[in-house]
């Protein structure tokens, strides 16, 4: 790693102030620290968000589940509130990385990083979540803009993510056998605003599969999407899978997610 300064502020306002043009926020560090170790980034300062009490905790109120940005995956996976309100979200969190990673990695870090293969983006899109930052609120669907690119402005901090509780939802991914990242992951949610299908791993960033949503709105069953093809155009090709294979996996994972939602 190159040298850097380190600070751990105790309020969001101080954190925003502490950040300079070339510094980075540090959440759980599960992506940032490996990136620094490989010298793929050279921030002059890390602003550690772990001292911010406002970014912690899980609560349910008025049909909404709210998760603080610095809540680690293990806490989401094991939370009685999450298991009761949105069990699919607990399932999703329990499949990220491995136990050690789940004890450090955070929901805020995951979505701010916007890795195309991260799990949480599928839920943010499918559940129509709201991202609360220190400056504004962003609709989940508008949050992811491209490969490792979000609507966040430089210096903006994700404070919490709120998920409207759906009638039912399911998540299924085809994990990379080594890293457990989603080669493709699909969340299917039957929500107050209709059926929504969030796809991660397949494209540059999470997106909705609207043809599947239309079919599921009429008939919420795996059979309903049997003939709904996902076009391979624009999907990712890398050493793990071709765009065509990913397109195929979207259908397979969606069917399993529907089965889980109906389970």
């Amino acid at each position: 790693m190159y040298e850097f300064d380190y600070t751990r502020p105790s309020s969001v306002a101080d954190a925003a102030k502490a950040r300079g043009d070339d510094s980075s926020y540090l959440a759980g560090g599960m992506t940032l620290l490996p990136t620094l170790k490989q010298r793929l980034a050279r921030p002059d300062k890390l602003v550690d968000l772990s001292g911010l009490a406002e970014l912690k905790g899980i609560s349910v109120a008025g049909g909404t589940l709210t998760i603080g940005a610095m809540t680690c995956h293990a806490d989401v996976a094991n939370s009685a509130d999450v298991k009761k309100a949105i069990p699919a979200l607990a399932v999703l969190a329990s499949g990220i990385g491995d136990p050690q990673v789940r004890n450090r990695g955070t929901i805020g870090g995951s979505i701010a990083n916007a890795d195309p293969s991260a799990d949480y983006p599928a839920a943010v899109v499918a559940l129509n979540a709201t991202i609360h930052t220190n400056k504004r609120q962003l609709a989940g669907e508008q949050f992811f803009k491209g490969l490792f690119e979000t609507a966040l402005e430089p210096g903006e901090i994700v404070v919490k993510v709120s998920f409207p509780i759906p009638k039912r939802a399911g998540y299924c991914k085809f994990p990379n056998p080594a890293s457990r990242y989603a080669v493709v992951g699909v969340m299917v949610a039957d929500t107050a605003s209709g059926v929504r299908v969030g796809v991660t791993g397949a494209g540059p960033c999470a997106f909705r599969a609207k043809d599947m949503e239309a079919a599921l709105a009429k008939n919420f069953s795996a059979d309903a999407i049997a003939n709904v093809a996902m076009p391979a155009k624009g999907l990712n090709t890398d050493l793990h899978a071709t765009a065509e294979y990913r397109a195929h996996l979207v259908g397979v994972m969606a069917k399993r997610a529907i089965a889980a939602a109906l389970g």
């Binding site: 380190y6 751990r8 540090l26 560090g29 599960m30 620290l33 490996p34 890390l46 550690d48 772990s50 136990p99 050690q100 990673v101 004890n103 450090r104």
Partner: peptide, 11 residues
Amino acid sequence: PVKSCTMLAVQ
């Protein structure tokens, strides 16, 4: 359990 190679001492 955490991985101590992916954590700074200051953390």
